[in-house]
Amino acid sequence: MHALPESTQRVAAELQRLRHPHAPRMLDDAARTAQQAADGLGVALGQIAKSIIFRRKSDDAAVLVVTSGDRRVDEKKVDALVGKTGRADAEFVKAKTGFAIGGVSPVAHSTAPVTLIDRELFRFDVIWAAAGHPHGVFQLSPHDLQRLTGAPVADVVQEISA
């Protein structure tokens, strides 16, 4: 575990504490985007659990939306669930989560975010999430994600046009 970057070690320790069976692994190439992660793992784009951070306007809280890699977040749906949000810049994301953009894990944040899980992730048995570093990922199921985060499952994505 000591060969892992510090932020990934934090994720590994949290996964271990929560008795998650899959430790983080490092990819040879960066997985800053869902497409890069899917390509690096040889899985469908939708199997990537991408972490999108918003900034809630009322209290400056981080709002984490974990969504399927092949979907786009509908900010109006998020706002209806958690209150008005705005964009979060890289400095805000790092300060609130302890992770850089491109490596935001759904667990082991420096400050617990308000979290929502995209119901579209439940189309898959196996998904992959960032493990605190642009090269770090870990395997889980959508049910594991819900158990690890305690977050509700919601409709938070844009409708797909046929």
Rank of each mutant, 00 (worst) to 15 (best):
A3Q: 14
S7N: 10
S7D: 04
Q9K: 02
R10N: 05
V11S: 03
A13M: 08
L15A: 12
L15T: 12
L18C: 14
R19Y: 12
P24R: 00
M26G: 00
D28R: 12
D28A: 12
D28I: 14
D29Q: 11
R32C: 05
T33Q: 06
A34I: 12
A34F: 11
A37T: 02
A38E: 03
D39C: 13
L41S: 09
V43D: 09
A44S: 00
A44G: 03
Q47K: 02
K50I: 15
I52P: 05
F54C: 00
F54T: 06
D59C: 08
D59Y: 10
D59A: 07
A62Q: 09
L64Q: 13
V66M: 03
T67A: 15
S68A: 10
G69T: 02
D70E: 07
D70P: 03
R72E: 03
R72I: 04
K84N: 02
D89F: 13
D89N: 14
F92Y: 02
F92V: 04
T97R: 10
T97L: 09
G98M: 07
A100K: 07
G102S: 02
G103L: 04
V104W: 03
V107A: 08
V107R: 01
H109A: 08
T111Y: 15
P113F: 11
P113E: 12
P113L: 13
V114I: 14
T115S: 15
L116W: 15
D118P: 07
F122L: 02
F122I: 14
R123C: 05
V126Y: 14
W128K: 04
H135I: 04
G136Q: 04
G136V: 06
V137Q: 02
Q139C: 13
L140H: 00
L140A: 00
L140P: 01
P142Y: 09
P142M: 07
H143R: 14
H143E: 15
L145W: 05
T149Y: 05
G150H: 13
D155V: 04
V156C: 12
V157Y: 05
Q158A: 11
Q158M: 10
E159K: 09
E159F: 10
I160S: 09
A162P: 04
